[in-house]
């Protein structure tokens, strides 16, 4: 009787140990390997994006005289592709994949009285640079929601001023950024945990650095809201998640 117990105990200990080793090894070796790719489309009639009147800033008006800049609330390509959609993993991340902060320092430029890019995705505590490429002053005024761990600030950046190097401590999708001097300027910074992506002009995206596992991917668009999908990433095989947002 006691021998049997001992054997069972030894066996289960072995199994537990093996399982533990397996879990650890997959975590270590697979981190940074997997990918989630896809495209985001828009169906229906896209809202009218009106040309922006920049006459209050003669420099910017002249710059865009032949090709006026349009509002970017819903940017739809000829084939229905939807640009500026943020994609991030809202559930399923664990350990280092969730807590890792990208060392990349993306640039948030003010150029031609526009934010380039219009939408940016970041990790919490990931540093980014705010730059001014215009020969005119801008004030950068991000407006996070109160009580969400991020605080609003408002800084003037005259022409030729050095970049502002900063980060957001709290997750928030998404923080609106505006310039009070040029009220048409607006953009969003989506602060998330873990790997993320923003769709390009073809509506395509790739979230890289995703360890194998099952996840919920969330797509966020500034006026169309959020959608989620469950995906499974296997080692060496990118998962696909396509999204479609419907217009009214």
């Amino acid at each position: 009787m006691t021998i049997r117990y001992k054997i069972t105990a030894a066996f289960s200990a072995l199994v537990l140990f093996a399982l533990g080793a397996l879990v650890l090894s997959t975590n270590v070796s697979a981190a940074g390997e997997g990918k989630i790719t896809g495209t985001v489309k828009f169906t229906g009639t896209p809202p009218h994006e009106r040309p922006i009147d920049m006459s209050k800033e003669p420099y910017c008006q002249k710059l865009h005289a032949s090709n006026p800049v349009k509002t970017e609330n819903v940017v739809v390509g000829p084939d229905g592709s939807l640009e500026w959609v943020v994609l991030y993993i809202s559930e399923g991340l664990s350990g280092s994949a969730a807590s890792a902060v990208s060392s990349e320092k993306p640039k948030w430029d003010q150029k031609g009285c526009q934010y380039i890019p219009h939408v940016m995705a970041l990790d919490a505590n990931q540093h980014f640079l705010v730059t001014n490429s215009d020969p005119t002053s801008h004030n950068i005024h991000p407006l996070p929601k109160a009580g969400g761990g991020n605080n609003q600030w408002n800084k003037s950046q005259p022409p030729g001023a050095p970049p502002i190097d900063t980060s957001w401590p709290g997750e928030e999708v998404a923080i609106q950024v505006k310039c009070n001097i040029h009220p048409w300027m607006h953009g969003y910074m989506a602060v998330v945990k873990g790997p993320n992506a923003v769709t390009d002009e073809k509506g395509a995206y790739t979230i890289s650095g995703v360890p194998p596992g099952s996840y919920t991917v969330t797509a966020w668009q500034e006026t169309l809201g959020t959608q989620t999908q469950k995906v499974t990433v296997a080692a060496g095989k990118p998962a696909t998640a396509d999204f479609t947002f419907k217009g009214k």
Partner: peptide, 14 residues
């Protein structure tokens, strides 16, 4: 310091 909550930005950096 700027007047936070209003459009008046901070100029201390520049």
């Amino acid at each position: 310091t700027g007047l936070d909550g209003s459009p008046m930005p901070s100029f201390v950096d520049n």
